[in-house]
Design a protein around this nucleic acid. Sequence first.
DNA 1: GTAACATATGAACATGTATTGAATTGTTTG
DNA 2: CAAACAATTCAATACATGTTCATATGTTAC
Lengths: 100, 100
Amino acid sequence: MASDHNIAELADLFRLLGDTTRLRIVLACVSAPVSVGDLAHKLDLSPSLVSHHLRLLRAARIVKSERSGKQVFYVAADQHISGMLADMLDHISEPHPEAD
Amino acid sequence: MASDHNIAELADLFRLLGDTTRLRIVLACVSAPVSVGDLAHKLDLSPSLVSHHLRLLRAARIVKSERSGKQVFYVAADQHISGMLADMLDHISEPHPEAD
DNA sequence: GTAACATATGAACATGTATTGAATTGTTTG
DNA sequence: CAAACAATTCAATACATGTTCATATGTTAC
């Protein structure tokens, strides 16, 4: 079964991905590193907001960061994250059978 | 790529699973139907709170309900949900490689 | 029908958190 | 060193939501 610690950690992961803005940010840098500014521009968000969210995502090891000159690039932390997100998108895009 | 609608739906799913109490409830009825009272007793929660959460989970098609006499039994809505949760638990329980 | 039980709902409260804008830190270029 | 750019941090605000308690609905047994 699932330990309390695992449940808490899993809930943390879900909670972070459960915000539309944060999820868009993760999906935008899931396949290749993107700078904070590019993310902000691409998603029409303020750099400040993007940075706030990236800090949380980084702390949870959902993304990792790498500095290159003035810019900092973020990308999905590992294959687990990107693969999981792909699976979840598959799950969502499938037709929902009617049930109660 | 992921449409806005898909992103919103996926974020909803994650958001609902991102609460410890709700996640415990889902995990407790992932393999077999459990009544509201049993869930409350097993998880040491008030029936009211459990019912509130089940309503949200049911609306999002994460669980489905079936009445049997006075009791209402809840169980994971489909294989996608239970399989996804198993995968996620695997992901969490694996050791985290050190990275930045 | 009434009583007892199981579940659901409503309102109120407390807590958490997403967002914003200003100020700060870090980095490169002159 | 100063200026310009990128990113981060801080404080404040607005909003969402988890929890509680009281009340209501639905079901079975007497």
